[in-house]
Design a protein around this nucleic acid. Structure first.
Lengths: 215, 215
DNA sequence: AGGGTTTTCGCCTGGCGGGCATAAACTATT
DNA sequence: AATAGTTTATGCCCGCCAGGCGAAAACCCT
């Protein structure tokens, strides 16, 4: 099993480690490991993230897909991929062979894991559009501009903070905390602070074609 | 591995078989089996559907999730669940121990498979709202009324054929064939015949919050 | 020919996404 | 203290779309 671990700083980044053992020695790959007998899949994934790359603050963890893999030369086994979202501000102290890489300029990764990263990015883009998935990438409290920056890093195009706040606010997913930020060095009106109301995934528009009856 | 096989007649139905061997002998469960060494997961799923329950005309096949399972008393293994959609009109000839059951009145199923059926139904409901997933449940050609019946069977509430045709038509997912149906025994205006333009899954509204720039 | 039935077309309305201009609030400079 | 520059917030407006409703169209049966 392995995980596409994503976080947002200035760019969208994913966690890679350099393998120290065969197969694919000295090459980059997704962090992961094996499942122990009797262990649940999600439990095993959290164990690997904590033990091997020091990641304990996981905002959201979700299974991507499973497929038969031939990553090990003499072994046939099943490979389960996960998507893990790390909130901004959580700075895990990584082991020396592990580092963040912007998803737009990835090094060559082993085992065809580049495809898994691509699919994870695609899935995240979709989820941002119809859910509150950003709660797992944003810090606990933030301004609308900071939240829009998170969206822009994932989606790849400009997002209006005004509209973002209105849409998420109308769906009841976002609420002001009442606090304000001090203005930056360049001045400007202080920004209001916001926070997500729920920290689980909520699909905001289950209906696109037709609404269920009102009662 | 196992599959939640869904089709629509008057109701939404799923395929169950009565197990002839331990474990859970003589109880209902989802059809499935084991994966062979070197086999792809999707290939194995199609093989089981064809060989064991005679289902070859699969409109859409999609992985639901994997989890560690203790279905077999002395064995620890991984269980992969699939969702399979069968188009209306395809009438597979089932083996004697296999039959369709309306999802609203299921018998007791073994291995906790009732939860998998529930999750599959939920997922299908969502997909109908923001994709052309109905192409895998509807017959090749149909009237708007017949298509609305498919939606109603899955969603559980009334759907307007007029609005359905307008929405899917605007997204370019639906097109009239030019043909017409003869009126029913009770008379009425003959209905125009429609067909889906694409037979792969297309997500019709990737953006709910903000649209990408126009160029 | 006429009544009953089903589909189709057209109109209308409320709501929402999204752009834009203006106001508000702050910093730095003179 | 006044002004310029910068950033955020608010309000207004427009266009599009989902969805409801009524009227017309097209067919069956008596």
């Amino acid at each position: 099993m392995n995980a596409v671990v994503l976080r947002v700083t200035d760019r969208l980044e994913t966690l890679l480690w350099r393998r120290s053992r065969p197969p694919a020695e000295d090459r980059w790959s997704l962090p992961g490991g094996f499942v122990r007998q009797g262990e649940s899949l999600e439990g095993a994934m959290r164990r690997h993230l904590a033990e091997k790359v020091g990641v304990t603050d996981v905002g959201h963890l979700e299974q991507l897909d499973s497929h038969s893999a031939d990553t090990h030369p003499e072994l046939w086994l099943l490979d389960v991929s996960y998507l893990a979202l790390i909130p901004r501000g959580a700075e895990p102290h990584l082991p020396p062979d592990t580092s963040w890489h912007p998803v737009e300029e990835l090094p060559t990764v082993a085992f065809g894991h580049a495809g898994a990263i691509e699919r994870a990015h695609e899935r995240l883009r979709g989820k941002l559009s119809y859910s509150n998935a950003a709660f797992a990438l944003a810090p606990p409290r933030f301004t609308l501009r900071e939240l829009a920056d998170v969206y822009e890093a994932v989606l790849g195009y400009a997002v209006s903070p005004t509209n973002l706040g209105r849409v998420l606010g109308r769906d009841g997913l976002l609420a002001p905390t009442g606090g304000h930020r001090r203005a930056g060095a360049a001045g400007g009106r202080p920004a209001a602070e916001f926070a997500f109301t729920r920290r689980e995934l909520v699909v905001s528009r289950p209906l696109a074609a037709f609404k269920p009856p009102e009662n």
